[in-house]
């Protein structure tokens, strides 16, 4: 049975909704009633059925609409996708990884036929049927990174590894939590993480870098991060801050359930075989407060996490203005009962 792809928007009238099935598979990010940074890296191995970890690259009901939104962002601002000249090979690595995994995980929607370097790619949901020569950029309508990531949910940063550091030398970034590829391009690991509070002092980034530099082929890893977004907008970029920044002032006790979203990122790490670069996909999942509280455990726990969040983190995540309103709203769903350990709904 195939996925039932929805037609919806992430801008203007914001028609985005999760189906009840999609709510149940939401990657709720809190395993306990509180939150502090941790490296929280785990092996990225295929997980349980009907979770977002069932396949290495999750495709869900929002796929077609998310790809349409990405095309709109790129049409307005082509600098959302960039690749420095030495990163083309890493782009081909990325294309191979995404095509082979998608075709393997969702054969009813994607297929790939390889005859040496003559490849035939079919993407049924997006109506794409292309033949090209692997390694020859002139046979594709875009460079390989842009071509395949216009067909893949989530942002992708491609990190070159050299001189004992990682360098953000390519990527496509249209569904981001307020960071800019155009600003970060060419930066190293410590430079692009410089704005993050507290974590540097905790030594988090040094440990994370050491781990990532040693990441091996065939042994991908993942972690998660979270923030909140007002209205289901994928493109909360610095470039478009003028379009969404003021949304934060529009939260009222009456509209919390529909307007306020928990935004979870699943960040993955893959060693790319030809280029020895690291692929860093950042997949964004949104859930409305109305949808979240359909799980009593998630409602109780998120109320406690948000209420007790250290002020520096609330500031960094941009939640300060509307946090009290949301905490008050969520408190109606928290009877003080204990919550069970682990991420899942009860």
């Amino acid at each position: 049975m195939g996925i039932n792809f929805k037609q919806e928007t992430f801008r203007d009238d914001f028609s985005f909704r999760n189906s009840p099935e999609q709510v149940r598979r939401f990657p709720f990010p809190f395993h306990e009633d509180g939150y502090m940074y941790s490296v929280n890296i785990e092996p990225h191995v295929p997980g349980a059925k009907n979770t977002v970890f069932e396949h290495l690259f999750d495709v869900d009901e929002h796929y077609v609409s998310e790809m349409h939104d990405r095309a709109l962002v790129l049409a307005e601002d082509p600098l959302r996708c960039q690749s420095l000249p030495h990163m083309t090979l890493a782009g081909w690595d990325t294309l191979e990884l995404l095509m082979t995994e998608k075709a393997k995980s969702y054969p009813e929607h994607f297929s790939l036929t390889r005859d040496g370097d003559k490849w035939h790619w079919v993407n049924r949901p997006l109506g794409i049927d292309d033949r090209f020569t692997f390694g020859d950029t002139s046979t594709l309508p875009y460079d390989p990174l842009e071509y395949i990531t216009r067909q893949s949910q989530g942002d992708f940063a491609v990190l070159d590894q050299r001189d004992g550091n990682l360098w953000m030398d390519a990527g496509i970034v249209t569904t981001q939590a307020d960071w800019s590829l155009d600003f970060d391009i060419g930066m190293n690991f410590f430079e692009w993480h410089a704005p993050v509070p507290l974590a540097h002092e905790m030594g988090v980034f040094k440990r994370a870098l050491k781990f990532l530099m040693a990441l091996q082929q065939g042994q991908p890893a993942r972690r998660h991060n979270w923030t909140m977004t007002i209205n289901p907008r994928l493109d909360t970029s610095p470039e478009n801050y003028h379009k969404w920044g003021t949304d934060r002032t529009t939260v009222t006790p009456e509209n919390v359930g529909d307007k306020v979203h928990l935004r979870v990122e699943i960040q993955m790490f893959f060693r790319l075989p030809r280029s020895n670069a690291l692929l860093f996909p950042i997949r964004c999942y949104l859930i409305k407060m109305d949808e979240l509280v359909t799980s009593p455990k998630w409602a109780r726990r998120f109320h406690r996490v948000l209420r007790d969040l250290p002020p520096e983190l609330a500031e960094y995540k941009g939640l300060v203005r509307y946090r009290p309103t949301v905490v008050e709203w969520l408190s109606k769903y928290d009877d003080g009962a204990p919550t069970s350990p682990g991420f899942g709904p009860d």
Binding site: E42, P43, H44, V45, F211, Q216, G218, Q219, P220, A221
Partner: peptide
Amino acid sequence: MRAGSNRI
């Protein structure tokens, strides 16, 4: 931490 199998 090691993910997946490293042996062939």
